[in-house]
Design a binder for these strands. Structure first.
Lengths: 223, 223
DNA sequence: TATTTTTCTAAATCGTCATTCAATGTAGCA
DNA sequence: TGCTACATTGAATGACGATTTAGAAAAATA
């Protein structure tokens, strides 16, 4: 009752990691059990032995990747002092100004999750849970910033919905390597939106606030 | 040389329409030739006869749906007088305040297109063309509104990128029937963002002149 | 060490499609 | 009317891939 659970765990992780890689490369529907097995250096039959079916494997792999991202993000954020800095970092994690392979991989998986959630009940549940968790994280940072006076008044839930959707839409464009939309622009737009709505100065992390009624100063930006 | 082309066209349209329906219901990867044939009331072999392969059929079906949406939207918009009204309508078309089956179907297809564009060169090209066309439409409305003095100064391209991404992200949430995000909220958020950035008064909905330095009056909205 | 349980795999199964084939019907036309 | 080309289909054909199966290996247990 000591070595077994560990082995089981090891195998599962091994396969889930392989699955996440393959899904990222080939997409959910073109991911075959044989691909995952090969990537993990094991036999296809063993994959079924551990996960029961292809569907279950895919579902678990998506969940695994979600947690990987969220846990890492959460850990990072709690290590940062000050709500402004935390918000800035949060935006950077989802929309980094320069291309990050890891971030692209996550976004690729979210797209797969979205398309699956349209028809798969289980995927829909997971997608919603992920979304809720993420929005809560944003809202919590906002509340904290409001308590500390860094941010102006604004409904935290509404802000979370707004920012989260904006990041989804913009990150998607960047993911496609749209010539008109690169990481820098995406990051900047998210920062601007957050700064404008919450009335804070994104400048260097930990800067002071902008309290009330910061309308739109810089209208025409970008070249 | 008169009846034949017409029949060919009729058959193709018949099949493309069937394909669009099936793709919306089952998703791209679960759409079988037999499904499309059945929906169209024809034999599977005939589908191949007209499209050559399943892949080609799916690609063309996606393109067909894109055009359907875009042409209809464009037609609608050109019939509207004034940039503000046109922009309001544009937002309504993509993010209607109440659920519209047709709109949901389009968004469902876009999600499929996104996930396909991640790996399929042809889909990637089409996705980008669609996106560019859509952003141009937005930018054009903005330019027009600026010429007429309805809108304040703001880089039209940048605004188009921003609004388009915001609509993508928000419409996606609404598509998932997220309990915290319904059509009304999505529509309102898009309108607010547009009104705020361009400094115009959307009129009909929540009367709020957002001109200059109007911070946030109604903090907690949503119901 | 012998026995039992768990892990692992190679080699069948078994279905499910896309695609192809062979044949039949049909419309335009000489 | 008979001819030709296109339209249409039912019935193969063939792959491909998820599970299953039958046992071998390895580990735990006694």
């Amino acid at each position: 009752m000591s070595a077994r659970p560990k082995l089981t765990q090891k195998r599962r992780t091994q396969m889930l990691e392989a699955a996440v890689e393959v899904i990222g490369e080939r997409g959910l529907c073109d991911t075959r059990i044989a691909d995952v097995a090969e990537r993990a250096g094991l036999s296809p039959a063993l994959v079924v032995y551990y996960f029961g079916s292809r569907e279950a494997l895919l579902t678990e792999a998506l969940a695994y990747a979600e947690d990987l991202f969220y846990i890492e993000a959460f850990r990072e954020l709690t290590g940062i002092e000050g709500a402004s800095g935390r918000l800035v970092r949060l935006i950077e994690l989802a929309c980094p100004p320069v291309v990050r392979r890891e971030t692209d991989e996550y976004w690729t998986l979210w797209v797969e999750l979205w398309s699956r959630a349209l028809r798969n009940e289980e995927a829909a549940r997971r997608r919603e849970a992920l979304e809720r968790r993420w929005r809560n994280t944003i809202a919590e940072v906002v509340r904290e910033g409001q308590r500390s006076g860094e941010f102006g008044p604004y409904d935290p839930e509404r802000f979370a919905t707004y920012l989260s959707a904006l990041m989804d839409g913009l990150a998607l464009q960047a993911l496609f390597r749209d010539p008109a939309v690169d990481g820098r622009l995406v990051n900047e737009m998210c920062m601007d939106a957050a700064a404008r709505e919450l009335g804070f100065d994104p400048g260097a992390p930990g800067q002071r606030s902008n309290k009330k009624g910061a309308g739109q100063q810089e209208l025409a930006a970008e070249g």
